[in-house]
Design a protein around this nucleic acid. Structure first.
Lengths: 221, 221
DNA sequence: CCTACCGATCGGTAGG
DNA sequence: CCTACCGATCGGTAGG
């Protein structure tokens, strides 16, 4: 089968592989991203059911039906927000782990880095995506929830060995799996009360407070 | 002014004091309570905006308009759920504190009792009210939120002195106010993952895990 | 409490 | 992406 010669630009503009994409996969520049960010911000502030697709459209200057050109349904838009949030958090954590790989073999320092990174993901600039994932997952469909859960498992994977090593050093007490759940709770809950303006505490100070709370000071190993 | 003689039953059925009550204050037996419990359960499962007043009416076998005979608005129903939850939690905590007042002066034991009681309030039987308060307060009006915040302050009041005493004993490290926020986060987050059926852990084991995590073991005082 | 109803808003779609 | 629209559902009310 033959076709006329194309310029490289034409080949890029009209990819051959899967000509028919569903609306959720389409990527035409930054309009889709603008919708994602507006949705994340509004879902975070007002909740999924408390936000209409019209709210989101208006936030980016679109008409009421236009978000459905980019996302097949409101539920798919919620899923896209959570997926984007988790992938970005995962990438950020992986980069951090790679950077400290050589320098610190100390599990105490490793946990401090994991916690500091988590606070950054949760409370740093542009951090609406992860709180939405934490507080709105009941509005996902079953398969969507499973996909997010898989990403969460990847994100949490490096934590358990770090806690196990601290436990072996007698710097962490009690059941490790319950400790992990309680620690994540302490960190995640900060999205409810932390306001960078009101509290004087920085993310570094929050990290220090968490380490002080969870980790036993000088114990004979 | 004279009135015909009434039987005691008639006098009870038509109280003289404040004949005109707003719908939110009315108390005709257990229909109002049934609405409160159904609302708590549905708000907990589906969120405030994800639950319609028709859902709640149907759950107690009423017609769609009937909840508004008992509560002036959906928002007032949400507030009533939270207020009921906080008053009940506060009463339960006060009873517990009064009971252990004499026996234990040890702040470690005091904190364990506070935590165990909090897990009971949060995860025990019929515990939909407090999770609703924790996760749906953004749907309150300003004055409603203030009223709930006042009850929360009463509830949290006994915790800070307990933590301060532990800090003085060097059994708790780091900033006390941040520690309190992190501890409440660890406990409150359990409403997201704890399922009495799935996990084998009992509330006593949860309490033990939390105490192990937060409190330093044997340190010279 | 029920019946019957209202205006507003919602997610989503057809056609361009 | 916009225009114009649809059926469904929502919180709430009048009258009994």
């Amino acid at each position: 089968m033959h076709m006329a010669v194309e310029t490289p630009a034409q080949a890029r503009a009209r990819p051959r592989g899967r000509p028919r994409k569903t609306a959720d996969e389409r990527d035409d520049g930054n309009r889709r991203r603008a919708l994602l960010q507006a949705a994340a911000r509004l879902f975070h502030r007002q909740g999924f059911h408390g936000t209409s697709t019209r709210d989101i459209a208006a936030a980016v200057g679109m008409q009421s039906g236009s978000p459905f050109y980019h996302f097949d349904s409101k539920s798919n838009l919620l899923f896209a927000v959570m997926e984007e949030g988790m992938r970005s958090a995962l990438a950020r954590q992986s980069r951090m782990l790679q950077k400290i790989e050589q320098t610190s073999q100390d599990p105490r320092s490793l946990l401090a880095h994991l916690i500091r990174n988590h606070f950054g993901v949760l409370l740093g600039p542009g951090s609406d995506f992860i709180p939405v994932m934490l507080y709105e997952s009941r509005s996902l469909t079953g398969p969507q929830r499973q996909a997010i859960a898989a990403l969460q498992a990847d994100y949490e994977a490096p934590w358990l060995p770090a806690l196990a090593r601290l436990h072996a050093q007698r710097r962490l007490r009690g059941d490790i799996k319950l400790a992990r759940l309680l620690i994540f709770g302490a960190l995640n809950w900060s999205a409810q009360w932390y306001r960078p303006s009101r509290t004087g505490a920085t993310l570094d100070e929050l990290t220090q407070a968490a380490m002080d709370l969870f980790i036993q000071e000088g114990v004979a190993a």
